[in-house]
Simulated scan of single mutants.
Amino acid sequence: MPPWMLAPWLFPLWAAGALRAPLSGDVTQDISPFTNLFSPQVALNFAGDPRIERDVVSEVASYGRQLGVLTEALLAVAGDSDDPAVRRLRAMQADVEAVKARHASDPRAAAEQAMARLRREDPAAFAVLLERLSAEDPDEPPVSP
């Protein structure tokens, strides 16, 4: 049943193609920050080709990584300068590192969780892995399966 039959006053909208019933049209959506209009944190104004920008960010380095490299280079050139701008940049770099440390994962905790899950879901694979890890020389790099 067309939606306009349930609400006849919507017929002009439906006939003009402005009204769609659920699953009656495209179900794909680009949610990249380049097209997301509802993201107040991201405002991207490219002077160049957005396709190149997207590829650089996805294949070379994120904006954060690019800024990190530039910050490191600038602070290396600045040396022991006590200029207020350099002090602010150092403080900003320290703040960024603190946020990164706060979000860093604990590899031991992650390994313990993974091992506990493996023990529950596949006890035989857990036993094989435990035996292999116990038999390996701790000074040797792990053997790839």
Rank of each mutant, 00 (worst) to 15 (best):
L70D: 09
D139F: 10
M1W: 12
A85E: 06
D30E: 11
V77I: 05
I52R: 10
P142H: 07
Q41P: 00
A85T: 13
P33V: 08
A18H: 11
M5T: 15
R117Q: 10
G25K: 11
P142R: 04
L75D: 11
R20F: 03
P22D: 09
L133T: 02
V77T: 06
Q93T: 05
A110K: 10
A125W: 06
R108P: 01
A135T: 04
A76S: 08
I52E: 08
A116T: 11
L130Q: 15
R120K: 12
A125I: 08
R51M: 08
F46H: 05
L37A: 15
M5E: 15
Q66L: 10
P12H: 02
D82N: 14
A127M: 06
R132I: 00
V60D: 05
F126I: 04
R51S: 14
L19R: 11
L70S: 09
L10D: 03
A21L: 07
R51H: 10
R90W: 05
R87L: 15
L89I: 08
W9M: 05
S62I: 04
F46Y: 03
P2R: 12
A109W: 04
E97C: 00
S105E: 13
Q41L: 11
G48N: 04
S39V: 07
P138D: 03
D106V: 03
H103M: 15
P33Q: 01
S62F: 02
P142D: 08
W9N: 12
R132K: 13
L89W: 01
L133P: 00
A125Y: 01
A15F: 12
N36H: 08
P8F: 07
A111Y: 10
S105R: 14
T71G: 09
V57R: 13
R108M: 14
L70V: 12
F38H: 11
A135E: 07
A116I: 02
L130T: 12
G25N: 06
R132W: 03
Q66I: 04
V69L: 13
V57F: 09
R132E: 03
E72T: 09
V69R: 13
S144P: 00
D122W: 00
I52D: 07
D55N: 09
E72Y: 03
A116F: 05
G25Y: 05
R87P: 02
W14Q: 14
S32P: 03
V42W: 13
A127F: 06
L23E: 14
R54Y: 08
F38S: 12
A16E: 13
V86Y: 01
V128W: 05
E97S: 10
A15V: 11
A98I: 01
V99S: 02
P107C: 08
A15G: 14
L67P: 00
A7T: 15
R54S: 11
L44S: 00
V69S: 15
P141Q: 12
D83S: 09
R120V: 04
R20A: 15
A98Q: 13
A104R: 09
V60Q: 09
P50V: 09
L118W: 06
M1N: 07
G68H: 02
N36A: 14
I31A: 13
T71L: 05
E59Y: 02
D83L: 06
P50I: 06
R54F: 09
L118K: 10
Q29E: 10
Q29A: 14
S32K: 08
A111W: 07
P84I: 01
F34S: 04
E131S: 15
L133F: 05
L74P: 02
R90T: 05
S62T: 13
V86A: 06
W4S: 14
